[in-house]
Computed example of a mutant assay.
Amino acid sequence: MAGERDPWLPDRLLRTERDALMPLLRGTDQYDFAARTACPGWTVRQVLAHCGAALVRIVEGRLEGAFTPEANAADVRERADWTTSQVLDELERGFTEAGPVIAASDGDLDVIALGEWVHAGDVRDALGEPGAYDGKGALEALTILSVVSRVRHTPRLHATLHGHNAPLVLGNEVEGRPAASLAADVPTLIRLYAGRPLVRTRYELRGATESELVIYG
């Protein structure tokens, strides 16, 4: 799964997630948008507001000062008075239109597309839905992660994933240090690299610490 960047992979990931997530969200009870997520302090609605705002920033080229914790929080506050339908409409627009812009970039924005997929997992997890950090788009997400993990300078790791024949190679070689190894399922791998809670997960990690693997933060 490792290799050179495919510029259109983020677009495919975003569109796949749009087609899977938006019908679920359109049919979700208003009450459930107030459920808390794995993102400290944020509800489902706030996570979705952040996701839509981030993607539309990319679409509209408003990237200066973007994607910092402060900017993300400001984007969410700006949408506090929006209806849920408005939040979902912006998110769907972002899923649809951001991919070509990301494809034309130098690769720095690929991590945002991956983050959107991870946040979709946060939402599914909070709503008690199956497929959190797995399911449709997982192969594309893992391929992007293999590249992003090198860009973010995580140590070399060989991941043996349940249900996958070929190991996933992540991160960069470190002189004098052998590659780490991980045996886990896909959702646990994503939780590790995204810095999500690991309660109830089962994995075997050797040669690296959990904190060394996190690409967000």
Rank of each mutant, 00 (worst) to 15 (best):
T68K: 09
V174H: 03
L91N: 07
K136I: 09
P23E: 01
A179Q: 12
G61E: 10
G131E: 01
A103F: 10
T84D: 00
A208F: 09
T160L: 06
W82C: 10
R18G: 02
A113F: 07
P197K: 09
M1Y: 12
A80L: 13
E92L: 03
R177D: 12
T43E: 05
V47K: 04
V59L: 05
A74H: 07
G52A: 08
A166M: 13
D32N: 13
V199D: 15
T83G: 15
L25C: 05
E175A: 11
L170D: 04
E116T: 08
G27Y: 00
D6K: 14
A180G: 15
A180S: 12
P155R: 12
V123S: 02
R79D: 14
V101A: 10
E70C: 01
T83K: 07
A80F: 02
R150N: 01
A183T: 14
G207K: 06
L139H: 14
R124M: 05
A54Q: 13
A132Q: 03
Y216W: 12
H50K: 04
E210L: 10
L88S: 08
R150T: 08
L170P: 04
V169C: 06
V56Q: 04
A98S: 14
R124G: 00
Y203R: 01
W82P: 05
D134E: 14
E17F: 07
R15S: 11
G94L: 04
V47L: 07
L142H: 02
R200W: 09
R196V: 06
V199S: 11
V186F: 08
R156H: 11
V174N: 03
A184I: 03
E4Q: 15
K136P: 15
L109N: 02
H158D: 11
A179W: 08
V111K: 01
A35G: 00
E17I: 08
E140L: 12
M22Y: 00
G128S: 10
R206I: 14
W8P: 03
L192C: 09
T43Y: 08
R5K: 11
R191E: 04
E78T: 00
T143K: 12
D185L: 02
V47Q: 04
